[in-house]
């Protein structure tokens, strides 16, 4: 029972990280209709900035997190402006390959600067752990912060896209780019804003991910990136609650699969569940069923 609870908590913890990354993926996909494979590497950049801030510049953790969010936001806008904007009218494969090129670029640039070996990442939260049930169940402070951040981000994004002017513009652009433009929405600026928000979330996810697992290397972001993409599809890509739900479920499936079925087959179980879900719900759990017009 205790081990079940601790797996449950670590599953939700991992799931929250996936969910935060998946939110960025999903928003960008919803608005630009592109699979941004470089998203996973923005996570890695965010984590390295936070690492440098505490290791080399001696800044307090909070400042490091703020710095990494700021840098990643700028990075997201720059990537979008330099690499994706010229391809707005091009086919989706061309954009996909460009995103892959961008992902290679970020990974190799990080490898040149920081070297290929993993570095020790000091957690940004350090207020001990909470013991429950007479010390049998320990919850690390990182876990608490991760889960709380996930909930806050989810609520904030729901409010942002539902109530604010920019948020409504984002939804309009994702619904119909042409019509949104005719209504006086600046489509280019809206897309840039989406990339900025997605990248800021990626920075937070990167810091949380590395605080939980304590290692960081240039390829740190790629596997969580793929998993989060899977989570976004799982929940219904383009939908904010879907990304959150998909992320949490994916984290739970992975943790329980590794604990109770096979520790080596964890990834295979995650992907097998994804395939089965897509067979019965072809647009994901909370995705919209789009009717085809002839």
């Amino acid at each position: 029972m205790i081990s079940f609870l601790s797996h449950l908590i670590s599953g939700i913890n991992l799931g929250s990280v996936y969910a935060i990354i998946a939110l960025g993926y999903s928003m960008v996909y919803g608005i630009a209709k592109m699979l941004n494979f470089a998203h996973g590497d923005v996570i890695m950049v965010g984590a390295y900035i936070s690492f440098c801030a505490s290791q080399y510049w001696g800044l307090p953790p909070v400042v490091g997190v703020v710095a990494s969010v700021a840098v990643c936001t700028l990075l997201g806008i720059t990537i979008e402006g330099l690499a994706y904007k010229p391809l707005r009218q091009a086919g989706s494969l061309a954009v996909l390959i460009t995103a892959i090129g961008m992902s290679y670029f970020l990974q190799n640039a990080a490898q040149l600067i920081f070297g290929p070996n993993p570095v020790q990442f000091t957690s940004v939260v350090n207020f001990g752990s909470i013991s429950l049930l007479g010390g049998q169940l320990k919850i690390r402070s990182e876990t608490i912060v991760t889960i709380i951040s996930g909930v806050i981000i989810m609520v904030a994004l729901t409010w942002f896209t539902g109530k604010t002017r920019i948020g409504r513009a984002m939804r309009a652009v994702s619904e119909d780019k042409g019509a949104a433009q005719l209504m006086g929405i600046n489509v280019n600026r809206t897309i840039s804003t989406t990339f900025a928000i997605g990248s800021a979330l990626a920075a937070i996810a990167g810091v949380l991910l590395c605080s939980n697992y304590n290692t960081l290397m240039p390829t740190t972001g790629s596997m969580p990136g793929i998993k989060a993409f899977t989570a976004a599809v799982f929940g219904g890509i383009g939908s904010i609650p879907g990304a959150m739900l998909g992320g949490i479920l994916l984290g739970l499936i992975e943790t329980f699969g590794k604990a109770y079925i096979s520790s080596q087959l964890g990834d295979a179980i995650v992907f097998a569940v994804l395939i089965i879900v897509l067979l019965f719900k072809p647009t994901g759990l909370l995705g919209k069923q789009v009717r085809e017009k002839v």
């Binding site: 690499a83 010229p86 391809l87 707005r88 009218q89 091009a90 086919g91 061309a94 390959i97 460009t98 892959i100 090129g101 961008m102 290679y104 670029f105 190799n108 640039a109 490898q111 040149l112």
Partner: peptide, 21 residues
């Protein structure tokens, strides 16, 4: 060390050059 970096840049530039309106 720079070869994969160069490869990535070439990849992006070629995609933009051949696909951008």
């Amino acid at each position: 060390d720079y070869r994969m970096l160069a490869y990535a840049i070439v990849l992006i530039l070629v995609m933009i050059a051949t696909n951008s309106a």
